[in-house]
Design a protein around this nucleic acid. Sequence first.
DNA 1: GGGTCAGTACTCGGATATTGCATGTCCGAGTGTCCTCGG
DNA 2: CCGAGGACACTCGGACATGCAATATCCGAGTACTGACCC
Lengths: 159, 159
Amino acid sequence: MRMSEGVEWGLHCCVTLGWLDDRAPVSIRRLALWFDLPQEYLKKRLQALARAGILTSAPGVRGGWSLARPPEKITVMEVVAALEDGLDLFCCTEVRQKGAGGEGAAPSEFAKPCGISSVMRRAELAWRRELASHTVADLMERSPQGAERTRRNYLRMTG
Amino acid sequence: MRMSEGVEWGLHCCVTLGWLDDRAPVSIRRLALWFDLPQEYLKKRLQALARAGILTSAPGVRGGWSLARPPEKITVMEVVAALEDGLDLFCCTEVRQKGAGGEGAAPSEFAKPCGISSVMRRAELAWRRELASHTVADLMERSPQGAERTRRNYLRMTG
DNA sequence: GGGTCAGTACTCGGATATTGCATGTCCGAGTGTCCTCGG
DNA sequence: CCGAGGACACTCGGACATGCAATATCCGAGTACTGACCC
């Protein structure tokens, strides 16, 4: 179980778009060049972020991508959820009810989720809570050097 | 990103083996029948748990599987780690260093992990901590009805 | 000068490989238990 | 009655097939800006 690589890409794009806010929108070609990523696939991932209301895209020759909201209003959790289809880490298949082990049980016994499922859900909530407690703005602030370098390099790139 | 189904199987097997402690070892055939799972693949997953020192297997006609340790000494985290190859949820590929965006940076800038990686790691730690705080014994205690039904059904199965 | 029109550089969404991992199956070899049979 | 040996029911580990989701690429259509051209 590993997270999709697109999550890392998406988060870096969000942070970079935040840093380049005054220069937005940024075209997909430049973003792909920026991180040395496959352009078409990156575009697909960013489209997912647009569907989630995190990014917006502008068509046309001066078009490109920019944050749909101020970065302090975008949590890391939102980005992860948008890029992972909001799926749960753990998916209980109610194994306990199947086969010989589940025979002869009172129906009420399965009304509540099983202990395993509960523990998993608690752990997942802790994970989500942590992710939700950080925003793109937090990430931007964590690396002032990165912000500066980004602006400098982007200036050089666009001439 | 979804957890392998084998994790659910493994945990249910551990709990069931805990409940049936006095009747262990339990053969893979019975376990597979018990949960209506593919026998060969289940075996593979249990072998992984054996490698991690969580289960032991006994060969021979009265052989089968049993817990390698008392259930209060087996955390849910251990089972998950054993079945997921201990891989991290998030794997930083250092995208920030690649492409045009990373050019002209001081080497010292990349000495520390990037903010994204840090946030992910914190979240993952919260998840792990939660999983490590529960043991198989906890899970066993959560469902006294399940314990009783298991013993009853197993008795019927083995005659 | 201002309106029209084509060109350009982007976007989108859908369709289609390719890849890798989770899932699932099969087989040969090894080992402990039980049963049988001969002494 | 007891010990040797074979049958059996399990185990292990590796090899192989399948399915699906992540990754990657391509294409046709739409849209906004730019510049040229014409009235």
